[in-house]
Design a protein around this nucleic acid. Structure first.
Lengths: 231, 231
DNA sequence: GACTCAATAATGTATATACATAAATGGACC
DNA sequence: GGTCCATTTATGTATATACATTATTGAGTC
């Protein structure tokens, strides 16, 4: 037996999806749904609130509940944990630590990590899938926020995976763009000079504390991000 | 007055965010929360279910409610309506229709739109911001799903904006990658040959019906996608 | 010790009710 | 006609209660 509030939700959804109820349309009141399904208001309310939370409906006191304007431009983007993603494809994963340095934040570091001052860990590494470079990563880790990171051997575990497992929760901001590989980058990625690369930058924090900044370059012909949206 | 279930939700969130409760930790039962806040179980339940829906908690009958494994790799990506985005930046927008053709689906069209057969509208256009090409767009519109599109003058309104306003609801899938501009593309974008471009492909449908396929190329130095995640 | 099965404890669903809140409505008044 | 204000109506929050569901626990049995 599917719960009643799921059925109500589904029924409303399909009225919207079919185009019967266009954006802006005022749907029946909770009292009317109660009558239609011979159920209590709480049950109707549960269905409606869930649709409101997922963005399909909007409700205003006194006025009623309305179909939202469609916004299919909002999609859930899966930002990958590179190691997990490579291994999911059945490929062998290898990490190559190019550089690792503990240092007081330079002006550039401060701007990227958005911190006023402090010590950090700067890492450069390459992610390999099946002996082909998959991504080149620059990373800064704020040691005042994550002091344990100072003692981690990032030649074995990729910094992203380690942080994902050890830093309890985060907010994150991403910036995605395309850039041409300069000669040094191209060499490290074993790709032709000027190859178009997907550049994925990520800023992560917990509460007010800045945790890490990462910049990953993926050769465009070896990688694509996918995002999916559905109501 | 902030509602009680919001306060409970916030309190649980901050326990998780601070790292006090790590992923896998079993949080107090609903009965214990009831006692702690001297409120009814429905109120506690509302807070917990909202946290479950947003992915911070998971609950299993009989066993209890647990902190989820962090997944900060899930971010909300804002897929732009190009015209709206350009104009939001205070720049002038101009559309340049390069090609428009009504035709039975070719083999390639069928593969892209993922339809078995039918008639479609194929469009190629350029989006300008302040007299500089901002994006080059190829688009296919399935005329069996959206017959009205056949009569629309897409030299005035960009196909994306028109569809957003006229097709009631959709599912969408996106693919983001980086490619080098070939000579013809570079010329149309008024960018140097081989310029790294962000390629954004989008498949859209409503129920089972395929609506449209779009492929937009943005010169990497003129554009970046951003995505934000927060609990 | 290993299997069976009933008791138990947690979440999941649902009802009925009450009062709070906010905005649209409509009437009284100038 | 326009302004003010009380009324009305829809959603928002919350309580108290009941029974369903399901995985764990633990006792009893072989």
């Amino acid at each position: 037996m599917t719960p009643l509030h799921h059925r109500i939700r589904r029924d409303i959804e399909s009225r919207i999806m079919s185009g019967e109820w266009r954006p802006g349309h005022r749907i029946p009141t909770e009292a009317e749904w109660m009558a239609a399904y011979a159920c209590s208001r709480m049950t109707v309310n549960k269905a409606l609130r869930s649709l409101v939370q997922s963005g399909l409906l909007e409700s205003r006191k006194r006025a009623g509940t309305f179909v939202s304007a469609p916004r299919f431009h909002r999609a859930a983007l899966e930002i990958p944990d590179i190691r997990a993603e490579v291994m999911e494809q059945g490929l062998s994963y290898r990490l190559d630590l190019l550089h690792r340095e503990r240092r007081p934040a330079t002006e550039e570091d401060k701007a990227l990590l958005r911190i006023p001052d402090g010590e950090l860990l700067a890492i450069q590494c390459r992610h390999f899938a099946e002996d082909l470079p998959y991504a080149l990563e620059h990373r800064l880790i704020n040691l005042s926020a994550v002091p344990e990171a100072a003692d981690v051997d990032f030649s074995a575990e990729p910094p992203g995976s380690w942080l994902l497992a050890h830093v309890p929760w985060t907010e994150a901001e991403h910036r995605i763009t395309a850039i041409n590989a300069d000669p040094a980058t191209a060499k490290k990625l074993e790709a032709p000079e000027n190859t178009a690369c997907l550049a994925l930058e990520r800023w992560t924090w917990r509460g007010q504390e800045r945790i890490t900044y990462a910049r990953q370059l993926y050769p465009g012909d070896r990688y694509a991000l996918t995002a999916h949206f559905h109501a």
